[in-house]
Structures are given as structure tokens and as C-alpha cells.
């Protein structure tokens, strides 16, 4: 068992076109590190230099927006399902 991660179109350049990838880790942050070792460049698209999640992306663990569950510190475990989506936003 592993953690399944759904990748949005814009990030599939990092996953060789794959819509879903798998990884492991005890927290979302550790999972992102693991994913980045398999798919270099992915972390940069998700995490800022200050180590926070980019405001341009939404990350969900089992349909729960991680912004409300501790962001990168959110606990994850085998069998969880993680979804990454680009935020749809803008303004004049």
C-alpha cells in the first residue's frame, strides 16, 4: 500500500504525463519530498522557498483541504488519497 496522489494537468510534465503517482511519508511534507525524489521539480511547484504551500495550489487529503488540517504537517498514511488541484482565482 502507498499513498495515491492525483496530479493536475499543469504538473504532469513532472510525472511523465501520469495522472496519478504513488508515494509515502508520515506527513504531507514528507510525502512531497518523496514525490520530488521520484519526480524532480514537483516540490518547487507546490512549496515556496519559505517552506509553505503555494497559494496557487489546493491540496486535499481524503477530500479535506489541508489548509484546514495543518498544511504540510497534515498526517498521511498508506491508503490515503491525495489530490492536487490548481486554484482557480484571479481579479482585476
Amino acid at each position: 500500500m502507498a499513498i495515491e496522489v492525483r496530479i493536475p494537468t499543469i504538473l504532469r510534465t513532472h510525472t511523465g504525463g501520469a495522472k496519478t503517482v504513488e508515494g509515502s511519508g508520515a506527513t504531507l511534507g514528507a510525502l512531497v519530498d518523496d514525490l520530488d525524489s521520484q519526480h524532480p521539480g514537483l516540490k518547487n511547484r507546490l512549496v515556496t522557498e519559505e517552506g509553505k504551500l503555494h497559494r496557487f495550489v489546493n491540496v486535499y487529503v481524503n477530500d479535506e483541504d489541508v489548509r484546514f488540517t495543518g498544511a504540510l504537517d497534515t498526517s498521511v498514511k498508506d491508503g490515503d488519497s491525495v489530490t492536487i488541484l490548481p486554484a482557480v482565482a484571479g481579479g482585476c
Partner: peptide
Amino acid sequence: ARSPTFYEFDSGDLLRLY
């Protein structure tokens, strides 16, 4: 955002939409 200068899909709505 219910704003005259900004828009944003609610994160739950976004997930359901996709």
C-alpha cells in the same frame, strides 16, 4: 471571495468540480 476585484472558486467546490 464575493468581491468586485477578486474571484476564487471555493476549495470544496473546486474539488467536486474536478
